[in-house]
Design a protein around this nucleic acid. Structure first.
Length: 416
RNA sequence: GCGGAAUUGGUGAAGUGGUUAACACGCCGGAUUGUGGCUCCGGUAUGCAUGAGUUCGAUCCUCAUAUUUCGCCCCA
């Protein structure tokens, strides 16, 4: 038997219903907030991710799916969504003839070669939005609010943990100060942190092993190193978040794992279990890094699988059950032909209809009709069909009437 | 890349070094000769992840592999 590759899954059943439900919610919100869909390739030139996500990040150094195609090009399955969108923005010059901001959203699969665990797969799905061409803190707040209210509309209680990394210069100053402070204590930190100090010092801040150590409690604060502009921007964002009635808290340990972020960064953290459902930030220099013009940008991405996991615990699955309006019962070949024809008319008239197609007994067909929550049963028999009649049974009242076969569709449409 | 736990029908699972692998749900059929959802009766794994090994004999013991799952790292 051929099995699915490790870290993949088949979306079906309850999860598929929840996924559809979330997707509809996303579509609705994106219309209301005026975001446009963008779909970029699942694979891109490897170089794109090396230059955007960061040459030294774990995602790029050990988690990408890389291969050479038949033309000997280095290809990588996308590990995240932003790089492809930015590439597309530049390649298509989407910024060319407009001065307002460009608001895009995507929802697609991403690939990272990792050990699977709860809420983490090798193929996973992210919904995300990106806004280009505006450096206004109000847009930061809007972007944050989209994720927050998406979760809210889905019935998920979450808190936005926000931080400011500052502009490139403040970030560098702070990193230097942090390393200088930690160096003397390095042997008292965990093994991972001893590596991080050389690769990504900021990451030490949200280390779970050392989080209670005195060393980390007295670490220099990033807020002391922000430039005046970054500080003002951060304050402004918080002000706007208050207007938008968003439950947030400042967390100076939020640093994010992708290199391209600057200024405001945030994560959506589920109140129920503390799991990070999504994260984002501003990336004012990425477009330039990828050979585009200097265009400010901000965005976030959310892990659909994690949202599904969270939703699953407190949703009434019954509400998502696929139900049918009409079930047509037949046994003989003659009856089946009529069933098929009636089903066709009903379906084309937007009546959800199912039909016996497995030569089942009457008893089985009744059971299936109930399982499908059919409101009406159309029960065919040769005798009545010869007179041009069909039986329609209201499955709630159990009342049954005979209707002229030609009138069936109208009758159903009138009584549904 | 590192560590823990698991893997028995469609599903939830029990179980044993030795003839037919419990039980329940589901499904199918019958009682009910074309109107059910209750009840009763019957059927439903040629098989216990895969491959080696130990043994007279392995689903059960050992090893390896795969997958699942939960952590770490990392991230969504």
């Amino acid at each position: 038997m051929i099995t699915k590759p490790k870290g993949t899954y088949d979306l079906m059943g309850v999860d598929a219903k929840i996924y559809t439900y979330i997707s509809h919610e996303i579509e609705d919100m994106m219309v209301n907030y005026n975001y446009e869909l963008i779909r970029t390739p699942i694979f891109e030139a490897s170089e794109l991710f090396h230059r955007s996500v960061g040459e030294t990040t774990d995602i790029v150094t050990k988690e990408t799916y890389d291969f050479k195609d038949r033309g000997d090009r280095s290809i990588t399955l996308r590990p995240e969504g932003t790089a492809g969108v930015v590439r597309s923005l530049i390649e298509n010059k989407l910024y060319g003839n407009r001065n307002d901001c460009i608001k895009l959203y995507y929802n697609g699969t991403m690939y990272r070669y990792e050990r699977p665990q709860s809420g983490r797969n090798r193929e996973f799905t992210q919904f995300g939005i990106e806004v280009f061409n505006s450096n206004d803190p109000m847009i930061d707040a809007e972007v944050i609010s989209v994720g927050y209210y998406l979760l809210n509309n889905l019935g998920i209680e979450a808190t936005v943990a926000i931080n400011s990394l500052g502009d490139a210069e403040s970030r560098k100053n702070y990193t230097d100060a942090l390393v200088k402070y930690l160096k003397p204590h390095i042997n008292d930190l965990c093994e991972d942190c001893q590596t991080r100090i050389n690769t990504n010092p900021l990451r030490i801040l949200d280390c779970k092993v050392d989080k209670d150590s005195e060393i980390l409690k007295n670490v220099p604060k990033i807020s002391d190193y922000l430039s005046k502009e970054s500080k003002e921007r951060f304050e402004k964002v918080k002000e706007y978040l208050n207007i938008l009635d968003i439950n947030y808290e400042v967390n100076e340990n939020i640093v994010r794992g992708l290199d391209y972020y600057d200024e405001n960064v945030w994560e959506y953290i589920a109140d129920s279990d503390g799991v990070t459902l999504g994260g984002g930030g501003r990336y004012n220099h990425l477009v330039e890094t990828l050979d585009g013009p200097s265009i400010p940008a901000v965005g976030f991405a959310m892990g659909m699988e994690r949202v599904i996991l969270n939703i699953k615990e407190n949703i009434d699955i019954k509400n998502l059950d696929q139900a049918v309006d009409v079930y047509i019962m037949s046994v003989s070949e003659e009856e089946k032909m009529h069933a098929l024809e009636i089903a066709q008319y009903l379906r084309l008239n937007n009546v959800a209809t199912e039909i016996n197609s497995a030569n089942l007994s009457m008893k089985s067909q009744f059971k299936i009709a109930d399982r499908l929550q059919a409101k009406f049963l159309i029960i065919l028999n040769n005798e009545d069909l010869q007179k041009g009649l069909v039986n329609i049974k209201d499955n709630a009242t159990k009342e049954e009437i005979k209707v002229d076969e030609a009138e069936v569709v109208d009758w159903i449409l009138g009584n549904i």
